[in-house]
Nucleic acid binder design. Structure first.
Length: 970
RNA sequence: GCCUCCGUAGCUCAGGGGUAGAGCGCUCCCUUGGUAAGGGCGAGGUCAUGAGUUCAAAUCUCAUCGGAGGCUCCA
């Protein structure tokens, strides 16, 4: 009976599906992955970006999550108490679009998707603790998003303000700057327009400086650089120009036509004359503040430019210029961001008829408006220094405005002449034409580090003409959206008065009984029971940007069911901060910047106070623990679609005007072209409907397949048609429209989850990604198969060979070292490759009959534990079959032993003039004298020396695995 | 235009001053009682190009070429 069973066990092949489902259930039942606070154990919070419930799990989710899971499992086996939660970022536009186009309520659509994706996520065999699941669209969750909003409002972080915002016509909502890429909406790729609107903002700019500090954060350099660039800190000065009393007043040159075009005079004492001692009175001049990073060029300002949207445009424009100015303003308003950003476009602008007094030299200069000055950056007004700024230079040339050199280039003996310049000079030099500042040395350095800038800033401050200033490219985070499917903003209005919804009334619930009409407006705006609080009070109908929900989800996982606070302080004290965060780099300046900001606000408004107190009670120092939400960040790359060869076709028909009208198309092998074939043949490079673009020896031939044509594809049985012809597909992103998506469910059905996991980890550099190639799945499949076979064969009965066993032990420990390093560095591919290598050695040694039973069991016990994080199901199954205690996933990770990994004998390499010539087997710890002696005595050395003494002998001791060498220079 | 990363076998990738590596693929052979398979042998690389440093460069430096990503009237 027992014998029978034993035999069955021996011959059973690896059948992934049965064991995977079995163990997933067992893990659930035994709550194997439940993570609980345990102050006696070190904690590890591993977090992977939560998915949007779009309907189906994509292979990209597997690629992002399963390696993260392997690493979390490894940490757990190393003795950490690991939290690895999962949830859904469930508010957002696709649900609302589905509601409109398919008449299904967003709740239903979203929940159905979540149900489905939970099952798919389960099939990964990941160690998610599902009891900690958080879903951002539930009232239990968004109650706290609203609560945070109120706290932000109370602390002046959330405010309602009027600003030029990004309006997406296609989405019918405003968007944050971070969600606009190249002037287009990040989601749909549709152009975005600028609109002046009153909206809710978060004052992320208050934190600009702190967000630039990445101290103590182990984040990819590229992300830190992207965030730094996005914040865009620059140093310089602010100065206030005042409008001249009138264009004709003072000594200013009167020129109603616009600006003078006397280029030759531009380097003269003054282009327009000076206002002289009679500077404009306070009442006569409107202050126009400018920001510049080059205060050392203030004396070179020959005109000013305001953004067309600037408040003062209307005020200062002279009557005779009003028509032209207004026309220009209107035209600019119609332009989208994209049109305005096109490079090399003509520099357009209009003179306002007004002049401004340059505070440094009291000179009157004309004020223009032009679209190259952005209202959203700096003060929306610039002093134009055409000699030293390329944009101003181009504008000056286009509008025939004067140019004055105020930095004499370094190393140039002759004075730089404006009329000889073909571009602005922005290099180092000496200040000239700048009154008392002449002679100051300007370098490439920015801010105060530049001596000239430093001196000018001091002077500006002493004379009260300006001051040192720091400017940021970062704008405040626009948080309101004119959409339905988002968290309600807990605010009400009584006329102009803003009334926060009382805490006890939170959450403001999203009404369900709304009509989804394709009007582009949020259903909330015509849902009276929602927005009408009473006769005078109206509720806010805008909703929260979904990025707000995902800015704090790592906190909700701590206690997803808690209804008295956003998170439990005891849990937070133990688990926070997130130790390792993984996800896509596409969130560099969106989610990853927002969540850092959000966390800092929470810290500053005291949301972490209780958690800090709990930390102290447990003897952990809370200092700095809440400065950053995620300590280590790693981004996975992207799995791309596979390259595909197009079908090779023989087409016959008649040629008309360089195009073939084909009556017959046959798919063949490239080498099966009949001799003397007269038609078109080659690979299908592209196909649109029934027109084939055939690559015939490098030349594209067009073939129109006639409706009645015969199509023969021998691989596809039955009658074929033109739609079955496959065209060439380059490596590119996976997308439904390209038909190159890979469905993980199908892969799991075909190979099993463990094989898919291992394939994803093995075949790509995780942080880089790459093209899909299902052929390569055979590698990991064969590996797991072999492990299974080795286990199924059972322990050998013959006694082992001591030397061979020692060799295997050494290799095993060398392997452990590589796996540890691979997991530590997110180099999952190397960790698996090393295990494959070890398996090969072990298998070969087993075949030689050199492994004894005891050794076999010892090696297997370690091999299976090493395998467990990568292929959790098969590891669990083999572990159980070998009779060991449940579960392999709670076992201790094999301990690396450097002594066991050490080689005893190594090859001493004898090199002659740097070229290896011979090897001698020696002890690892061979000393210099002995090694050199042996090398000089070697045949190779004797031959090349020919009795002469060597010029030089260099000994290189072997270290970490490399062989010792002796280089003999002859 | 600027910034970051990267060019190693047919493919996907390790390595990294000291003998050029892995998996897949490929050739040939064996097995056909693990069979939508197994085993064995093997071929295949000027480490993108050029210069420099060194006893020694795939590795370090510089330049060039090529690729990927990001930023871009940022005053």
């Amino acid at each position: 009976m027992l014998k029978e069973k034993q035999r069955k066990h021996m011959t059973e092949t690896y059948q992934p599906h049965a064991i995977e489902v079995k163990w997933q259930q067992r893990w659930d039942e035994t709550k194997l992955y439940r993570a609980k606070v345990d102050w006696d154990k070190p904690k590890h919070y591993a977090l992977t970006m939560l998915p949007y419930p779009s309907g189906d799990l994509h292979i990209g989710h597997w690629f992002a999550m399963t390696p993260s899971d392997a690493r979390a499992r490894w940490m757990r086996m190393k003795g950490y108490n690991v939290l690895f939660p999962m949830g859904f970022d469930a508010f957002g536009l696709p649900a609302e679009q589905a509601a409109i186009s398919r008449n299904i309520h967003p709740w239903k659509w979203t929940y159905a998707n979540i149900e489905r994706m939970r099952e798919q996520l389960r099939s990964m065999g990941a160690m998610f603790d599902w009891e900690r699941e958080a879903i951002s669209c539930t009232p239990e969750y968004y109650k706290w998003s609203e609560w945070f909003f109120k706290r932000f409002y109370e602390h002046g972080i959330a405010y309602r303000g009027s600003a030029l915002v990004n309006w997406s016509e296609s989405l019918q909502t405003v968007l944050a700057n971070e969600q606009v890429i190249d002037g287009k909406d990040e989601r749909t790729g549709q152009p975005v327009a600028h609109k002046m609107m009153e909206q809710w903002f978060f004052a992320i700019t208050n934190y600009a400086d702190e967000l630039l500090d990445f101290d103590g954060m182990d984040w990819p350099e590229s992300i830190k650089i992207m965030q730094t660039n996005w914040i865009g800190r620059s140093e310089g000065a602010r100065a206030t120009f005042r409008t001249a009393a009138s264009a004709s007043g003072g000594d200013a040159t009167s020129n109603a036509e616009g600006a003078p075009n006397d280029d030759a005079a531009s380097n003269a004492e003054s282009a327009y004359g000076r206002a002289g001692g009679s500077s404009p009175t306070e009442s006569s001049g409107h202050p126009i503040e400018i920001y510049t990073t080059r205060p050392d060029t203030l004396w070179g300002a020959t005109f000013m430019v305001l953004a067309p949207e600037h408040d003062l445009v209307d005020v200062i424009t002279a009557e005779e210029q009003r028509e032209a100015v207004e026309a220009y303003v209107r035209q600019t308003a119609l332009e989208t961001e994209i049109e305005r950003m096109v490079e090399d476009r003509e520099r357009t602008g209009v003179f306002t008829g007004a002049y401004a007094i340059n505070p440094v030299n009291d000179e009157a200069i004309p004020i223009w408006i032009a679209d190259y000055v952005m209202i959203t950056y700096g003060t929306g007004a610039i002093m134009a220094v055409p000699a030293h700024d390329q944009r101003d230079f181009e504008f000056a040339r286009a509008q025939a405005l004067p140019i004055r050199v105020v930095i004499q280039p370094e190393g140039m003996t002759e004075p730089l002449r404006p009329d000889a310049m073909s571009e602005a000079y922005d290099g180092p030099g000496v200040m000239v034409n700048s009154d008392a500042m002449d002679g100051s040395v300007s370098t490439f350095a920015k801010g105060r580090a530049n001596p000239a800038i430093n001196r000018v800033i001091d002077w500006l401050e002493e004379t009260g003409k300006g001051e040192e200033a720091v400017n940021y490219r970062l704008r405040d985070w626009l948080i309101s959206r004119q959409r339905y499917w988002g968290g309600p903003i807990p605010m009400m209005y009584d006329g102009d008065i803003i009334i926060p919804v009382p805490d006890e009334d939170l959450p403001v619930l999203l009404p369900e009984d709304v009509d989804f009409m394709p009007t582009g407006r949020s259903p909330l705006t015509y849902h009276e029971p929602f927005f009408k609080v009473n006769e005078t009070v109206r509720r806010e109908t805008d909703t929260l940007d979904t990025f707000m929900c995902s800015s704090w989800y790592q906190l909700r996982y701590l206690s997803p069911d808690l209804d008295t606070a956003p998170f439990d302080a005891e849990e937070a004290a133990y688990w926070l901060p997130v130790d390792v965060y993984t996800g896509g780099a596409e969130h560099a300046v969106m989610h990853l910047l927002y969540t850092r900001f959000f966390n800092k606000v929470l810290r500053d408004i005291g949301v972490y106070a209780d958690a800090a107190e709990a930390m102290r009670r447990h003897g952990r120092d809370p200092d700095g623990a809440f400065d950053e939400p995620m300590i280590v960040l790693r981004n996975q790359g992207q799995v791309l679609g596979a390259e595909r060869q197009g079908d090779f076709v023989l087409c016959s028909g008649r040629l008309i005007g360089g195009k073939m009208l084909a009556e017959r198309v046959e798919v063949v092998d490239w080498n099966q072209v009949p001799a003397g074939f007269a038609g078109v043949f080659g690979e299908i490079a592209h196909r649109t409907e029934n027109v084939l673009h055939v690559n015939m020896a490098g030349v594209t031939q067009f073939v129109e397949v006639l409706p009645e044509a015969e199509t023969i594809i021998s691989d596809i049985p039955g009658a074929n048609n033109v739609n079955q012809l496959r065209h060439h597909l380059d490596i590119q992103r996976m997308s439904k429209s390209k038909g190159n998506v890979v469905n993980p469910d199908e892969l799991v059905a075909k190979y099993g989850a463990d094989v898919v996991r291992c394939y994803l980890m093995f075949n790509f550099d995780w942080q880089k990604g790459g093209p899909w190639n299902e052929n390569n799945i055979k590698g990991p499949q064969g590996w797991l198969h072999d492990i299974w076979e080795i286990a199924a064969a059972g322990a050998p009965t013959a006694p082992g060979d001591a030397a061979a066993e020692r060799d295997i032990e050494r290799k095993l420990h060398q392997t452990i070292a590589v796996i540890n390093r691979g997991l530590e560095d997110f180099s999952f591919n190397t960790a698996i490759a090393e295990q494959m290598k070890f398996k090969n050695s072990f298998k070969a040694t087993l075949r030689d009959g050199a492994i004894g039973a005891e050794m076999w069991r010892d090696v297997m016990s370690q091999v299976i534990r090493l395998l467990a994080p990568f292929a959790p199901h098969i590891a669990e199954e083999i572990w159980a079959r070998l009779g060991w205690e449940y579960s392999v996933h709670t076992q201790r990770w094999p301990q690396y032993d450097a002594d066991k990994a050490r080689e005893e004998m190594v090859d001493l390499v004898v090199m002659i003039n740097g070229k290896p010539r011979e090897t001698i087997t020696v002890a690892v710890d061979i000393e210099r004298e002995r090694a050199q002696e042996m090398a000089l005595a070697s045949g190779a050395a004797q031959r090349s020396l020919g009795g002469q003494a060597p010029k030089r002998t260099i000994f290189i001791p072997g270290r970490n695995g490399s062989d010792p060498k002796v280089n003999i220079v002859v």
